[in-house]
């Protein structure tokens, strides 16, 4: 079960998928690049599916949609490698 939760296509992801905020995130991501399957992709940065231009376009959209502030410290691949990772970062920044 623990292994399952660590998988990118885990239950957590599908539970969150129904969430309207998560849908909003997927909508923003699809606008940046509609050719990527964000539900399964876990190497968005490592495999250069999203380049630095896309990430820089994504930042203001995320900040406006979720009322967060992203700093240079958050600009690390692990925060942007999957929709789940971005979602975790958003939640963490919301708590700050």
């Amino acid at each position: 079960m623990q292994d399952l939760l660590l998988q990118p296509t885990s239950l957590i992801f599908f539970i969150q998928k129904g969430d309207k905020h998560m849908n909003k995130l997927l909508e923003i991501l699809n606008e940046i690049n509609p050719e990527i399957d964000y539900e399964t992709e876990t190497r968005l940065i490592d495999d250069a599916l999203l380049d630095s231009f896309s990430i820089l376009s994504l930042i203001p959209e995320l900040e406006d949609a979720f009322d967060i502030s992203i700093t240079p410290a958050d600009m690390i691949p692990v925060n942007f490698n999957s929709a789940n990772a971005i979602w975790s970062m958003i939640n963490r920044l919301k708590e700050d």
């Binding site: 630095s52 820089l56 376009s57 930042i59 203001p60 900040e63 992203i70 700093t71 240079p72 600009m75």
Partner: peptide, 23 residues
Amino acid sequence: LKDYVFYPISLTAPIKKFGKNSR
């Protein structure tokens, strides 16, 4: 340079606004 020049400049409010307008 990417971590301490590129991102800090990119994430300033005027540059983000400039980016939105450019797009």
